[in-house]
Amino acid sequence: MSALRVLSAGPGVTAQDGGRRGYLRFGVTAAGPMDRLAHAVANLAVGNPAGAAAIEVSLGGVEATAESGPLTVAVAGGAFAVTLDGRPLPPAVRLTLEPGTALKLRAGAAGAWCYLAVAGGFDLPDVLGSSATHTRSGLGGFEGRGLRSGDLLQVAAGRQARQEPGAIVAPLLERRPDVIRVVMGPQDDYFADDQVAAFLAGPWKVSARSDRMATFLDGPTIAHAKGHDIVSDGVAMGAIQIPGDGRPIVLMADRQPTGGYPKIATVIGPDLGRLAQVRAGTAFRFRAISIVEAVAARRDEAALLTRGIAFEPVIRRELSSEFLLGLNLIDGVTGDRPGD
């Protein structure tokens, strides 16, 4: 059976399937990908189900090789710098990884997370119905922890056909991060109108101390009208809580299932990955939309995924600037962008 050997990994690189379902009521964090759409694209590109286990790569990057046979792998997500034995490749790509060759993913032009999927999926133990890693509780994934140099991940049986690298044509991953859509509530009545207006006016910047549990925001301070301690209630992914210091925190994939601060608004599902990909220091605003609009956006995203993944040949270039130009041309011919 083939396997993937981790040659090096920065902090925060973990195995994630679609997330743990059904155990929030027992206090168990769902985990799963920060950017569900990119995770799904990487999996679909190698013929896996959208929610199969893949490696979530942080800005710390990862380097890996194949053992005991070639592996068909795909990379998708933020615009990471991808190289195969030093040869630059597009940031969204499918390729064959041979034993003895090294695939390197490093922080690139944009984005904060990318996904490395392998045909057949990684063979990881099932913990409460999922292989998603929650490092804080040491649950799931690869020994309940982040990946590090030397780790060997077994690959479940899958067709590992040798093929030339193909750029993944994924205009659906080109999501503008400047506006993040929210549904107000559940505790927007804990804030006076001028504070809700200040929240929507922003602008906000993602703080560098953000992680898989929470995205911390820098911007205006939001004051509470009725105090900042509430009796805990449920917390959805994307909940924007305002703690005592008035600085918003967006609760993400590794959030606890319940929490005790008022939540002024909730990021809509289709914009969670978009927010996750915002680099520290990049400015954006929130825009409030209705439930009906949010559900329509969710329907659009689901429809995009059912269209399947298309590939373009990778044009060999010696200079990386020309190579990037070539990428833009490829993207330019695909035309229709997902509406938002």
């Binding site: 549904v183 509530g185 559940p186 505790q187 009796v231 917390v235 909730t266 599902g269």
Partner: peptide
């Protein structure tokens, strides 16, 4: 009934323990 986004609904019976 309070919305926590478009995929979660809070059914709230009170605000205290």
């Amino acid at each position: 009934f309070l919305d926590a986004g478009e995929a979660a609904l809070v059914v709230e019976f009170g605000e205290i323990v």
